[in-house]
């Protein structure tokens, strides 16, 4: 090159470094991913490791100080005490029923938003679904406390037909959780419906399929991964929450037990042991969800 006005930067360390980097994709990736991997590794996985480790420690019965020694006593206590089993079972049942209720509610809403509503009405519905997420979670649960309170609005409303509200119970916990996590189910299911090309509906009708057949053979299988994706949110959020049961339930849940052990009872090792339970349940749940293709739908 003999042209004096080259647009290339002058030869130098910086340029040679950048050129070398351009040719080496692994090096690029390393530089790009080092900060998030570092954070993820140290802060997230590190604290998780400490949590798992502390599950094997125990309290000195006299001084109540944490003994940094390996022991399975927490696990023995977890399994042998029938109260713990009841709590785990109750939490899982509530998480499962919340998930089922949210599926049943989200399905028609998401279908309507994706395939029936006009673009204008769709944005209005989107606002209605997302708006609750803008307000504080605690405020919304407190609102439910007022609704559910004895002699409150729900009692009054049901009193008209001679019924009584659920008060503060497992049913009310289920009700509030179903309300809280509904947007997390609607959004992925909406995206699932949106992704189905309109021509598939027409092709099914063209080949003789009535609405019910089309739904069962084409729509449902295609939207199932999205439903599974949504259920990961509803299930795991219910499993880990301790504020809602604290406010609207009488019974104990997984979250409340962990909270009380590390906050009130100051038994951090036992709280850690209990925390492994939802982690284990979620691991099984995610394996099942992956089989349904939920991760391709996220």
């Amino acid at each position: 090159m003999t042209t004096g006005t080259s647009s290339l930067p002058p030869e130098g360390v910086r340029r040679r470094f950048l050129a070398a980097l351009y040719r080496r994709t692994p090096a690029q990736l390393l530089i790009l991913l080092a900060p998030p991997i570092g954070w993820f590794g140290a802060v997230y996985l590190g604290s998780l490791a400490i949590l798992l480790l502390s599950a094997f420690w125990y309290l000195n019965p006299i001084t109540s100080a944490v003994v940094h020694d390996f022991s399975l006593s927490n696990f023995q206590q977890l399994v042998s005490d029938p109260v713990n089993r009841t709590i785990v079972l109750r939490t899982v049942v509530i998480a499962a029923t919340v998930t089922i209720a949210d599926m049943a509610l989200a399905f028609p809403i998401a279908y309507f938003m994706a395939r029936v509503a006009s673009p204008r009405f769709r944005s209005i519905l989107f606002m209605a679904v997302l708006l609750p997420l803008w307000s504080n979670y605690l405020v919304r649960v407190f609102a439910w406390r007022i609704i559910l309170a004895q002699g409150g609005p729900l009692d009054g409303l049901l009193g008209v037909v001679g019924l009584k509200g659920p008060g503060f119970s497992d049913v009310s916990t289920w009700l509030v959780f179903t309300y809280l996590w509904l947007p997390y189910m609607i959004l992925p299911v909406y995206a699932g419906f949106e992704r189905i090309p309109g021509s598939l509906f027409e092709a099914s009708a063209d080949l003789g399929g009535r609405a019910a057949t089309t739904f069962r053979r084409v729509v449902l299988p295609l939207v199932l991964p999205a439903v599974a994706a949504g259920s990961i949110f509803t299930f795991s959020l219910t499993l880990g929450d301790y504020i809602t049961p604290e406010l609207v339930a009488k019974n104990q849940f997984l979250g409340t037990v962990i909270y009380e052990n590390q906050g009130v009872a100051n038994n951090v090792p036992f709280a850690a042991t209990f925390a492994i339970v939802p982690i284990g349940i979620m691991a099984i749940y995610l394996l099942l969800a992956r089989r349904l293709g939920a991760f391709n739908a996220l």
């Binding site: 090309p197 021509s199 598939l200 027409e202 092709a203 063209d206 080949l207 003789g208 084409v218």
Partner: peptide
């Protein structure tokens, strides 16, 4: 459509 004895080949194929 399911009451008509016609079938369609779609522009985007519309395979399931």
């Amino acid at each position: 459509p399911f009451e008509r004895d016609v079938n369609t080949v779609f522009q985007d194929y519309a395979l399931f």
